[in-house]
Design a protein around this nucleic acid. Structure first.
Lengths: 141, 141
DNA sequence: ATTGATGCAAAGCTTTTGCAAAACA
DNA sequence: TGTTTTGCAAAAGCTTTGCATCAAT
C-alpha cells in the first residue's frame, strides 16, 4: 500500500514494476484527479501536461497498474472503462444516470452491506471501488 | 409490469411497441433464460431456435426493450454488455471475478442497503438489476 | 396509407496485438 | 547486457448508422 510521501518511482518499484516515464506520468495524472477517469481522459490529461504517449501504451500502463492493484478499474458503459488511483481509503461512488454526476458514497454503508453479503452468501465483495447507478433525489436534469 | 400469462405481443403493445417477429423472438429467448445474456448469446439462442435476425436488429431490439423498461442492461467488461428480462421480482447478482460464475444475491440485503443509501445521501439507487463483483468464499480457480 | 422496423453494408469506437527500436535495471 | 517497455501500425471486437425495402397498425 503506497504512502503519501512515496514518489511514483518508489510506488512502482514497490509493486515490482519498472519505473518508466509513461507509468510515472499516468500515476501523477491519476493521483492529481479526485475522481475516476476514462482512458481518453487520461490521455487528454497527459497531453495537457505536455506528456505524449501512444494510446496503446496508456492502455498497457493502466492494465499493468491495475494488475498490481495500484489502480481500480470499473466499467460503466461500453467503451467507458474508468480507472482510479487507489489511496489508503476506499472510494465508492454513486452515479446519477440522469445528469451523469458522480457523488461520493459513504464507506460505512458499503462496509455494512459487504459484511451482510459475506455472512449470507460467503461471497467476498471486491469493495475497493464500487460504482452504483441511480438517480439523485433532487436531480432535475 | 408484465404478468406471467401475457404473450409477447401483449407485452410489447402494453409498452407502446409494435409487435414484430424480432422483438417477440428476443423476448422469448430472454424469458427462457434464468440468467442474463450477452448480445452474442442472444443471437446464438435465436439461431438455435431457428430464428435468424441481423445483429443490428438484435442490438436495436434490445435497446428498444431496455428503453421501455422490459429488459435490464448492465456492463461488466468492455464489449460485454449483458441483458436480462425483468420479471416481477428484482434480480441481483454476485459475479466471481475468479471463476466467472454468477450467483444470485439476496434481494433483502440489497433493499436494506438501498434504503440506507437513500437515507444518508438522498440518492435513489437503480436496483432492478445489480451486478456486484468479488470472489466466492470457496473459489479455487 | 402512414408510420415504424428490418436487412444489408459500411463506418465508428474502444481496445488489443505483433514487432522492431529504445529504455530500464 | 538481458529483459521489459514503448511506438507504430494494423487488426480485432463490439456497437452504431444510413438507407432502401418491408411490415405493422
Amino acid at each position: 500500500m503506497p504512502t503519501a510521501k512515496e514518489t511514483s518511482t518508489d510506488v512502482l518499484r514497490g509493486s515490482g514494476l519498472r519505473a518508466t516515464p509513461a507509468r510515472r506520468a499516468v500515476i501523477e495524472v491519476l493521483k492529481a484527479t479526485d475522481n475516476h477517469m476514462t482512458v481518453s481522459e487520461v490521455i487528454e490529461a497527459l497531453e495537457s501536461v505536455g506528456s505524449k504517449f501512444d494510446q496503446s501504451t496508456v492502455y498497457r500502463v493502466l492494465s499493468d497498474l491495475g494488475g498490481v492493484g495500484l489502480v481500480a478499474e470499473s466499467r460503466i458503459s461500453p467503451g467507458d472503462t474508468i480507472f482510479e488511483w487507489i489511496s489508503q481509503s476506499n472510494h465508492h461512488h454513486l452515479q446519477c444516470t440522469s445528469c451523469g454526476r458522480t457523488l461520493p458514497l459513504d464507506d460505512q454503508l458499503v462496509q455494512e452491506f459487504i459484511a451482510n453479503v459475506h455472512e449470507r452468501h460467503g461471497f467476498h465483495v471486491n469493495a475497493t471501488h464500487l460504482v452504483i447507478s441511480g438517480i439523485e433525489h433532487d436531480c432535475s436534469v
